[in-house]
Nucleic acid binder design. Structure first.
Length: 426
RNA sequence: GUGGAUGUAGCUCAACUGGCAGAGCCCCGGGUUGUGGUCCCGGUUGUUGUGGGUUCGAGUCCCAUCAUCCACCCCA
């Protein structure tokens, strides 16, 4: 309506039941990630702009048109992170973690920012939970990371998902392949659609993404990069698949799967919802063996993924909870206060209950009936009632909403009585 | 950046061919001086997104503008 302030386009408020859905997922995800050996890392939400330009890549949509970039008072160019991998790599180097033994495995969870047009399943501020495993080139680690992503979906009972797998080569084989592809495509540029023509020079791999039937037909005649890998990449891909087979992970090879970030090498994968809504890609990731070096570190292989929280929750629940029908959280004891003096009286004598159960003191000043209604909608098990009469006699009325029974309880015995009733109701 | 839809009460939506702006939900009060879910009665809530135009008369028709949603694109 016509309030003074509105939320920014592409942002959302999460409240009531929906917050509970988020907590439910986050709790499970943290547990799974710990079990797979990942430790949480919390990096800043803003970073030097250059970090993302160099890692995600100038020329990508994310960098070219979707970043929240601004100048600080000190004329420093700062960007709200559009993704977290670059930040984790930066933190890895800046904290001297390259000297730590073995593979470092981090997970993160938090908001990301991309300034594109909002749409179903697409927000300007959205949230990801993701993983980065830094320090090993083993294809077995790729499989473990993919298995971790699947475990995340299993933990929240997500169904109907497909794992798409590809290998986009490495600095040894990709340049030659790209050159060949570019030359081939340039020779028949007239047969491609306008966007594809523009891509031939800049990012020829993305030609495979085009949905245009004529372009697809054309590309169908050209071998995908998967068929042109060098020996090392071919072995790597074979071993990733083998390790996935060992784990019993089902996947579909998709030679057209190209991720839109420049830093990926070799393995790329995506987990998508099979049917229904658009924006069906719930999770994407892959190997980025060149990124650490590019950020100033020693050559260090790494692999990771990120999972969209909003998209995943949307996949889990057919209908988003209606905020209008939402309720504040459940309580154990609801305290109805009839008058201001009663509010003071109740607050003081109920304080001890907070040591072992959830207590709501109603300071609304509404009629008794309205307060009882709220007690019911908060699903309280017990109601304490205080009014002038109770203050005068030093008692409370204690009503059990399950049985409907009510009794007077001396104010000094409230704590013990409530504890006893709640305990025996389990 | 491109295209398509929609804007009416806090929410979801009605309102015929242009003719008194309504319903359900929610909320509040009463039925019970101070007692929940079900029930009954009553009540509050509006610059019909905004600004122009046509008309005796506009929520309805026209123009502009803003906002939101959806799709392309991209991605999570």
């Amino acid at each position: 309506m016509n309030y003074r302030y509105r939320r920014l386009k592409g942002t959302r408020d999460v409240l009531f039941e929906e917050v509970e859905q988020w907590h439910w997922c986050e709790d499970r995800w943290r547990e799974v990630l710990e079990r797979f050996g990942f430790g949480e890392i919390r990096t800043p939400i803003m970073e030097p702009t250059e970090l993302f330009v160099r890692s995600v890549g100038a020329g990508t949509d994310i960098v070219d048109k979707e970043m929240y970039t601004f100048l600080t008072k000190g004329d420093e160019s700062v960007t709200l992170r559009p993704e977290a991998t670059a930040s984790v790599v930066r933190a890895y180097l800046e904290n001297g973690l390259a000297r730590q033994p073995g593979t470092l495995k981090f997970y993160y969870i938090g908001p990301m920012f991309r300034h594109d047009r909002p749409q179903a399943g697409r927000l300007r501020q959205f949230h990801q939970v993701g993983v980065e495993a830094i320090g090993s080139a083993s294809p077995v680690l790729d499989a473990e990371v993919i298995r971790t992503a699947i475990a995340l979906f299993e933990a929240v009972d997500a169904e109907g998902l497909t794992v798409l797998l590809n290998n986009t080569g490495c600095p040894v084989c990709r340049p030659a392949y790209l050159a060949g592809l570019r030359e081939w495509a340039a020779g028949r540029a007239g047969d491609f659609c306008a966007t594809c023509r523009a891509r031939i020079a800049s990012s020829p791999l993305r030609l495979f993404d085009c949905k245009e039937p004529s372009c697809q037909a054309l590309l169908g005649t050209y071998p995908p990069i998967l068929a042109a890998l060098c020996a090392d990449c071919r072995d790597h891909h074979r071993d990733v698949r083998g390790a996935l087979d060992d784990l019993g992970v089902r996947y579909t090879e998709d030679p057209t799967l190209v991720r839109g970030l420049d830093y990926y090498t070799r393995t790329t994968f995506e987990i998508t919802a099979e049917e229904g809504r658009k924006q069906s890609s719930l999770c994407g990731g892959g190997r980025y063996d060149g990124l650490v070096e590019q950020c100033g570190g020693a050559p260090t292989p790494a692999v990771g993924f990120s999972l969209g929280i909003e998209r995943t929750i949307r996949h889990l629940y057919a209908e988003p909870p209606d905020p209008q029908r939402g309720r504040q959280g459940r309580v154990d004891v609801y305290v109805c206060c009839l008058g201001t003096a009663a509010q003071r009286y109740a607050l003081a004598h109920v304080d001890g209950l907070r040591g072992f159960c959830r207590v709501e003191v109603d300071c609304s000043g509404r009629a008794a009936k309205a307060q009882m209604r709220s007690a019911d909608s908060r699903r309280a098990r017990l109601v304490l009632i205080a009014g002038d009469e109770e203050i005068a006699t030093g008692r409370f009325q204690l009503k059990n909403l399950g049985t409907g029974q009510q009794q007077a309880v001396a104010k000094d015995e409230v704590l013990a009585t409530v504890r006893e009733v709640l305990a025996c109701e389990g």
